[in-house]
Amino acid sequence: MTLSLTLIGIGTGNPEHLTLQAIRAINAQDLILIPNKGKGKDDLAQLRRDICAEVLTSETTRIVEFDLPVRDETTLDYRKRVDDWHDAIAAVWQATILAHGGADRVGLLVWGDPALYDSTLRIAGRLDPAPELTVIPGITSVQTLTAAHATVLNDIGAPFVVTTGRRLRDEGWPEGAAKVVVMLDAGGAFEAIDPIGVHIWWGAYVGMKEQIIIEGPLLDVRESIVETRARARADHGWIMDIYMLKRG
Rank of each mutant, 00 (worst) to 15 (best):
T61N: 09
L5E: 07
V161E: 03
L76E: 13
K41R: 15
I8P: 10
E223N: 09
I196Q: 13
L18K: 00
F66C: 03
L168M: 14
G101L: 03
V181Q: 04
I23R: 01
R24E: 06
G102M: 08
E59L: 11
G248R: 11
I214E: 03
H86W: 15
E191P: 00
R167Q: 11
A91L: 14
G207N: 08
V55T: 14
H199F: 08
T228W: 04
R48V: 07
T96S: 10
T57Q: 13
A230G: 10
D77T: 02
G203N: 11
D30W: 07
T6F: 03
T151H: 12
E65I: 00
I225K: 05
F190A: 03
T61W: 09
V198K: 13
N27T: 03
H199E: 07
E65A: 02
I225V: 15
D185F: 00
P131I: 08
G197T: 05
A90I: 09
T146N: 04
G9N: 06
L219K: 12
L20Q: 05
V198S: 06
I97Q: 02
M1Y: 05
I34C: 01
V161Y: 03
A124H: 08
R122C: 05
L145Y: 05
G172T: 04
I32C: 05
N14I: 06
V161I: 08
S58K: 08
L168F: 07
E215Y: 00
V106L: 09
T144C: 14
H236N: 12
D235W: 04
M208N: 08
I242V: 15
G125L: 07
D170I: 01
I200W: 06
L184M: 11
L127Q: 07
I212P: 03
Y117C: 02
A150D: 11
V110M: 11
K179L: 00
T228I: 06
A28P: 00
P217Q: 07
S4W: 01
A28N: 07
D84R: 11
T228R: 15
A22R: 06
L116I: 15
W93K: 01
E132N: 14
A192G: 02
T144K: 12
V198E: 11
L98E: 15
T19P: 00
R105A: 13
A230H: 13
G203S: 10
L153A: 10
I239T: 01
G157I: 07
V198A: 08
